[in-house]
């Protein structure tokens, strides 16, 4: 088959898979979605508070710290995969957890990837807030906790942006989950690792079909997040 035919065939197969609800592909898709969403949320759970503290506090080496976090946004997933693999490996310091080649390991690896994204975007959003906001909070005697509540509320559009970026990075990466998930059939096989497998097998149209499904999935998640973002923006008037 020529390139164009493979693409057309792949599109047809994607439609077939979606319409027929192929249970194997459905399971793979669900795993991808679940792992990447969990990783995005966990990344935010750690990234937002850490990012907030880094942005709000003054400490020696703050610039370096921010630069490191921003650099980590660009870390190759396969490096994260290798590091997490070595941690979770039987011989590794966290080997006792016995979670290598499980979806949990995939979540951990992707959380390492999404954390700097949420953290970095939180930092830059907080830093670019009007400094008078903080002063107003001081003047109104806001305790630290409430100061955080209000400032983080101010950057919620930025936080949704970080969700979109982090989820995009997670759902599309293959290096990390291949390494720590192992692409085990029916267990840790995700869309991206399945795409690599089909490509290696030379079954290009199936790989294209899964690629299309992945894009559709990402589109739906992003539509939801963008709608939320628009909602907030509209409320700002």
């Amino acid at each position: 088959m020529g390139g164009l035919e493979i693409f057309i065939d792949g599109t047809i197969r994607a439609v077939e898979i979606i319409l027929s609800g192929n249970p194997e592909i459905f399971q793979i898709t669900l795993l991808s979605l679940r792992v990447s969403l969990t990783a995005t949320l966990l990344g935010a759970l750690f990234g937002i508070p850490v990012g907030y503290l880094v942005a709000i506090r003054n400490f020696p080496g703050k610039s370096l710290c921010i630069a490191v976090i921003n650099t980590l946004m660009g870390i190759p997933p396969v490096v994260v995969g290798l590091v997490v693999y070595l941690m979770l490996s039987s011989d590794g310091p966290l080997g006792f957890l016995r979670i290598l080649y499980t979806p949990s390991a995939m979540v951990i690896a992707q959380t390492v990837l999404t954390f700097p994204v949420t953290c970095g975007i939180t930092i830059s959003s907080i830093i670019s807030l009007n400094p008078r906001l903080k002063e107003t909070l001081v003047s109104l005697s806001a305790p630290r906790f409430w100061e955080a509540v209000i400032l983080i509320n101010e950057i919620r559009i930025g936080i949704i942006t970080s969700f979109i970026t982090a989820f995009g990075a997670a759902i599309s990466e293959v290096g990390a989950i291949m390494m720590v998930g192992g692409n085990l059939l029916g267990y840790t096989r995700a869309l991206t690792t399945a795409i690599v497998l089909y490509t290696n097998k030379g079954e290009f149209s199936m790989a294209i079909a899964l690629g299309i499904i992945l894009l559709i999935l990402a589109l739906f998640v992003n539509l939801t997040l963008t709608a939320l973002q628009m909602h907030y923006r509209r409320h700002k008037g």
Partner: peptide, 25 residues
């Protein structure tokens, strides 16, 4: 209580903007 020129509003409802002062306390 201080009100400076062109005061900064929080990105929340008018009610919440006022309520925050009491929640802080």
């Amino acid at each position: 209580g201080a009100v400076f020129q062109s005061p900064v509003m929080f990105d929340a409802s008018v009610y919440d903007n006022v309520a925050f002062s009491l929640r802080f306390r």
